[in-house]
Design a binder for these strands. Structure first.
Lengths: 163, 163
DNA sequence: ATGAGTGCAAAGTGTTTGCAACTAT
DNA sequence: ATAGTTGCAAACACTTTGCACTCAT
C-alpha cells in the first residue's frame, strides 16, 4: 500500500461524534437489511460496517483490517465481499486494491468517487455527474453504465493547478 | 487471473496480418517516441509494444508476460509501468490487476474501455461518451476527469438483456 | 441444536527489488 | 566506454482456502 489519505474513524474516537448520528443510522439500516436477507449479525460485521460508515470512507480490505485489529484479516476480506454481493456495499477497483464503501451513505445523498492520479486522493462528486453519459450510452444500446461501480480517474483541482 | 477475453496477437500469427499495418505504425511511432525521450529501444520493449498494439488490447502485465514467454515477468512489469509514465500507454485498474493499452491506438481513433461486471468483458465506447461530464466537472472546478484512465463499469448489452 | 460465521495457519497469486550480466547508445 | 536494461531469484504484499471451533439464530 502506498498512500492512505483520510483516516478511518473508530467508534472510540471522540472527534467522530459529529457524524455518529448519520453513521449510526446507516449502520443500523445496513444491519437490519443484513438481517432481513437472512444473514447473521455478528460483532465483526458490525465493526466492519462501523468503519465503512465513516464519512467518505472508501477503504480496502487491507485498510479495514489495519483499522480493526480485533477482526481477523480473512474475516474482513470475506465480510466486505459478502456485503458487496448483497448490495449493501459497493466496490471500486483502485491502484491499491479493491475499495469498498456503503451503498447507502450516512447522509443519504448519493455521490461518486474519483481518484486523483497525482496525489491518490479520493474526491467526492455529485451523483449525477455522469447522468448524460449514462443516458447516451443507454439510448445507443452500447452499455449500461453504473457510475457507482466505476473508478473515475483524473486530476483533482489542487494537483491540476500546480501543473 | 479469472477471465481472459480476446487474445493477444503474436507477430508470427498469420491471422493478425489484417491489422499489421496499423499495428506496425502504432508500434513504430511508439518506438520513435521512446527514442526521442531518450529511452532505449530494446527487443523486450518492442515485444511488449507489439502485444499492446493488438487491436483493443487491454492487457495486464501478467497477461503480457504469459503471451511473451521470452520476456521476463519483471521486465514486463517494469516496461508497462515505464510506458505509462511516459504517456505512451495508459493504464486502467480492473479487478484482475492493472490493464494497459497504447495511448495512440493503431487505427488512430480514440476510444474508451468499459468493463461488464457480469461477464468481465471489455466493451469499447466512443471517445466522447463522457464529454459532457468532463466539461461539467471542469467548469464546476470539481475535477479534471480523464476518461482514458478511468475504469467504467456496468453491464454490457448482452448481460443487461439476460437479467 | 445446528449451521453460518470466525479465527488461524498455510498456501496461492500478483508485484517489486537488489544485483550481476548484458547491450543500445 | 558506460549507463540504461534485462534476467534471475528472492523478498514482499495481498488475497484465498481448509478446517476446527464458536456463536447467532
Amino acid at each position: 500500500m502506498v498512500h492512505v489519505h483520510g483516516t478511518l474513524t473508530h467508534g472510540k474516537d471522540s472527534h467522530a461524534e459529529l457524524h455518529d448520528h448519520a453513521s449510526a443510522d446507516a449502520v443500523t439500516s445496513a444491519l437490519a437489511l443484513l438481517h432481513e436477507l437472512g444473514e447473521r449479525v455478528t460483532a465483526p460485521r458490525r465493526a466492519v460496517l462501523d468503519a465503512l460508515a465513516a464519512e467518505h470512507a472508501h477503504a480496502t480490505a487491507e485498510q479495514l483490517a489495519a483499522a480493526l485489529p480485533d477482526v481477523h484479516r480473512a474475516t474482513v476480506y470475506r465480510t466486505v465481499e459478502r456485503l458487496a454481493e448483497l448490495g449493501i456495499a459497493t466496490s471500486m477497483h483502485t491502484g491499491g486494491g479493491t475499495a469498498y464503501h456503503l451503498a447507502v451513505t450516512p447522509t443519504g445523498h448519493e455521490h461518486l468517487h474519483a481518484r486523483c492520479r497525482a496525489c491518490d486522493r479520493i474526491v467526492v462528486l455529485p451523483a449525477d455527474s455522469l447522468q448524460t453519459a449514462v443516458e447516451r450510452l443507454g439510448r445507443a444500446r452500447l452499455f449500461r453504465l453504473e457510475p457507482d461501480h466505476s473508478e473515475l480517474v483524473g486530476l483533482c483541482e489542487d494537483c491540476a493547478s500546480t501543473d
